[in-house]
Simulated assay, not measured.
Amino acid sequence: MSLSIQGKTAIVTGAGRGIGLAIARHFVERDANVMFAGADEGALDAALAEWGDDRSQVLKFAGDISEKLAMANMISATLDAFERIDILVNAHRFVKDSDPLDTDPGVLEEMLRQNMVAGLRLSQMVAKRMIRQAQGQTDLVQAGAIVNVSTLAACRPVPAMLGYSIACAAQEQATRGLALALAPHNIRVNGVSFSSVMSHELQCALKEDAGLRDKIIAGTPLGRIAAADELTDTVHYLVSEGARFVTGQIITVDGGRSLADPVAAQVL
């Protein structure tokens, strides 16, 4: 089983910090060419500074990647630098509180646009390129791999973040639907759902709530919060040839948190 991604070209969105940065860095360390994409140019510059002047494997694109023109420009920049695209990881996430009883339609629409529609649209655009690249190849050669990153909010809704929960659930269904649509082209589409992992958003939340860390650890069977780079091996597997018969799956990386019943833990 080959897990090598050496020489592959990947686009990773949300790569300026947190989960996206951990995934992009992991790919570079495994000798892939990586487009770091995100809205915060300062964060991207800081991320790429790690490689100093030797940036033959890394590139950045700063812009609103929920906009179609920005997506097209990012794809063009990637092709200009690396000539092909083999991997797409939609790790960009937009999290905002919303009133579950009076959700502002604008907030809900923004949650869906940022967390589901943008990733779906980018996946469609990249998939068309992957299909063209694969022309003339044998059926057994992987044409491309796409991974969508979501959270446990998709199946464990958080009332204060109802819009985000809905968007995560929609994203996971889009993953399954796109997997079926692209299977005839030998492009695989999978998802990774995480919780109890040190994302950028969780870091910010822990600074605001001193007791949150203990609550998360208590609700996680493996008894800790994982580092962001503990998620990357799962993403790596899904984009590698080792997962060449895996598509349309949502793999949960949460230390068992989705299995835990906080009420049962107190009663049984």
Results as ranks from 00 to 15, higher is better:
261 D>M: 06
94 F>I: 02
46 A>T: 13
27 F>W: 14
131 I>D: 00
138 T>D: 10
128 K>I: 00
98 S>E: 04
151 T>G: 15
175 T>A: 01
70 A>H: 10
26 H>M: 00
68 K>I: 10
190 N>H: 10
15 A>Y: 01
183 A>S: 05
187 I>F: 01
77 A>N: 04
132 R>D: 13
122 L>W: 03
181 A>I: 07
179 A>T: 13
201 E>P: 06
57 Q>L: 13
266 Q>I: 14
63 G>W: 06
195 S>W: 14
8 K>C: 09
205 A>T: 13
120 L>F: 14
38 G>C: 01
136 G>S: 12
66 S>W: 12
95 V>M: 10
267 V>E: 13
195 S>A: 15
69 L>G: 00
24 A>Y: 10
16 G>Q: 11
186 N>Y: 11
216 I>Y: 02
247 T>M: 15
76 S>A: 12
200 H>E: 06
41 E>L: 04
147 V>D: 01
48 L>H: 00
146 I>P: 10
188 R>K: 10
142 Q>T: 12
122 L>Y: 04
155 C>V: 15
249 Q>Y: 00
4 S>Q: 08
187 I>Y: 01
228 A>L: 08
99 D>Y: 14
246 V>T: 15
249 Q>I: 03
157 P>D: 05
207 K>Y: 05
92 H>P: 02
220 T>N: 13
177 G>L: 10
219 G>S: 07
29 E>A: 07
150 S>T: 12
122 L>K: 10
81 A>S: 15
210 A>W: 02
108 L>S: 11
149 V>C: 03
44 L>H: 05
6 Q>A: 14
21 L>S: 06
59 L>W: 15
177 G>C: 05
92 H>W: 10
136 G>Y: 10
202 L>R: 03
23 I>N: 10
113 R>C: 10
228 A>R: 01
67 E>P: 04
236 H>F: 03
9 T>N: 02
143 A>W: 03
